[in-house]
Simulated scan of single mutants.
Amino acid sequence: MKKFTVVFLSALMALSLAACGSSEQNSGANSVSSEPQSTASAAESAGQGTENNEGAADSAETGGSNILIAYFSVMETDGVDTVAGASRVAANGEALGNNQYIAQIIQRETGGDLFRIETVQEYPTTHDALLDFAYEEKAEDARPELASQIENLDSYDVIFLGFPNWNADLPMPLYTFLEAYDFSGKTIIPFTTHGGSGFSRTIQTISELQPDATVLSDGLSISRNSVSGAESEVIDWVNGLDLTSE
């Protein structure tokens, strides 16, 4: 009887040990199967990181040009339509200021960055009132406060500078702008719209305000009466400058 009991107990112990071994193997299997899940999560995270990097690269390319197109433009709203003589033009169903329109063509051709020179004060949008306001500003030698600022100026080598010819001179906000920044070592390329005076002496004034910049004398001058049909002229002028956007 004792012998039977010993045999029975031995068999029972063997079964218990086998069960423990099986449980440990199952536990080990669960531990291993969790590793592929962690790897998959890492891969998904890596994939998301790649997408984010691609988005960042796109942003860098969009804002990574060495060309800036800065312009000042006031759109009149009275007097004449958008075709004949106004300081605005219709493009793709949208009314734009003359210099704004030209600046957008230059931006499209060069891949540069657009910057609108804006002031804290608002300008009249009717023709006669705007003429009077601009004349008074010039008589006072005013320096209107700017409402917009250039970021990362050091990244630009070429500055297209657009403005209307007011009273045979730069608009006074251009004086504020040119006195606020140092364009030393950069190339300034002027473009203007006018009522018959061309550039007057504005290019010389820009050179005086920025003596350490290279100011191109061969700027683009377009009559306000011709802006709506000037797209090809703007494109030919830009291509003739032989500029490349980096």
Rank of each mutant, 00 (worst) to 15 (best):
S148C: 09
Q149E: 15
I150M: 03
I150S: 13
I150C: 13
E151F: 14
L153T: 04
S155D: 15
S155I: 15
Y156G: 10
D157W: 06
D157H: 11
V158M: 06
V158T: 14
V158E: 10
F160R: 02
F163V: 08
F163W: 08
F163T: 08
P164I: 05
N165Y: 03
N165S: 11
N165F: 05
W166H: 07
W166R: 12
A168R: 15
A168E: 15
D169G: 14
L170M: 07
L170N: 03
L170R: 06
P171C: 01
M172E: 14
M172K: 13
P173A: 05
P173T: 00
P173R: 05
Y175V: 10
T176A: 03
T176D: 08
T176S: 15
F177E: 05
E179R: 04
E179A: 07
A180Q: 14
Y181D: 02
Y181G: 04
S184L: 13
S184T: 12
G185E: 07
G185N: 12
G185L: 12
K186A: 05
T187N: 07
I188V: 10
P190L: 00
T192Q: 07
T193L: 01
H194L: 01
H194Q: 04
G195I: 00
G195N: 00
G195Q: 02
G196R: 02
G196F: 01
S197D: 09
S197T: 03
G198Y: 08
F199V: 00
S200G: 01
R201M: 02
R201L: 11
T202R: 03
T202F: 02
I203D: 13
I203S: 02
Q204S: 15
T205A: 14
T205S: 13
S207C: 04
S207N: 08
E208S: 15
E208P: 02
L209N: 06
L209D: 00
L209R: 06
L209G: 01
P211T: 10
D212K: 08
A213T: 13
T214G: 10
T214R: 05
T214W: 07
V215H: 03
V215A: 02
L216S: 05
S217L: 10
S217G: 11
D218P: 06
D218F: 06
G219D: 01
G219C: 05
L220C: 08
L220I: 09
I222R: 01
I222N: 03
S223H: 11
N225R: 11
N225K: 12
N225I: 07
N225A: 14
S226N: 09
S226V: 04
S226K: 13
V227D: 14
V227L: 07
S228Y: 11
G229A: 15
A230F: 08
